[in-house]
């Protein structure tokens, strides 16, 4: 249970910053093919932006952005995306996680591999974001009666 911050400056600045952090995180995930970045870093950034809101705006305000109940199921969903891409490659006739045989028509194996990397990184990003938020929410639950 995190209380709302008493300082007006901290609240307004963090509310202003959070969307930009999220935009940058999406850029890091989507541009991970051509510059340093990828699913792990982008997911950590997305999680950090939500944690910033949790710490400054408080539980009530930040749950409009990300509900507490979504944390653990969404991290499972991220792992599911990763595993499902592997199974999709098996449906296309290849080995598990062999993105060259994903069943999308009209693409060369090299392009399919690039697409498979993007799908997998998205799954990793969702998983890392949701796990970071879920761990934070569990740790900051009201544990002690005061």
């Amino acid at each position: 249970m995190v209380q709302k911050s008493n300082s007006i400056i901290v609240g307004i600045v963090s509310r202003f910053m959070a969307p930009f952090i999220q935009l940058f995180a999406l850029y890091v995930i989507a541009h991970g093919h051509y510059s340093p970045g990828g699913g792990f870093q982008g997911g950590a950034l997305l999680g950090a932006s939500i944690l910033l809101l949790r710490l400054t705006v408080g539980d009530k305000g930040s749950e409009l952005v990300f509900k507490k109940e979504f944390g653990t199921p969404l991290s499972g969903f991220g792992v599911f995306i990763y595993a499902a891409v592997g199974v999709l490659a098996m449906i296309g006739g290849g080995l598990y996680l062999d993105y060259g045989s994903l069943p999308f028509a009209g693409m060369t194996p090299a392009e399919l591999r690039s697409l498979g990397i993007l799908l997998v990184e998205t799954g990793v990003g969702i998983g890392v974001m949701a796990t970071v938020i879920a761990i934070f929410d569990d740790l900051t639950m009201r544990h002690f009666r005061d």
Partner: peptide, 13 residues
């Protein structure tokens, strides 16, 4: 190490 860092965060949790 990229994966090790994220796993260390989770184990710290």
């Amino acid at each position: 190490m990229l994966t090790a860092i994220v796993v260390s965060v989770a184990t710290t949790g």
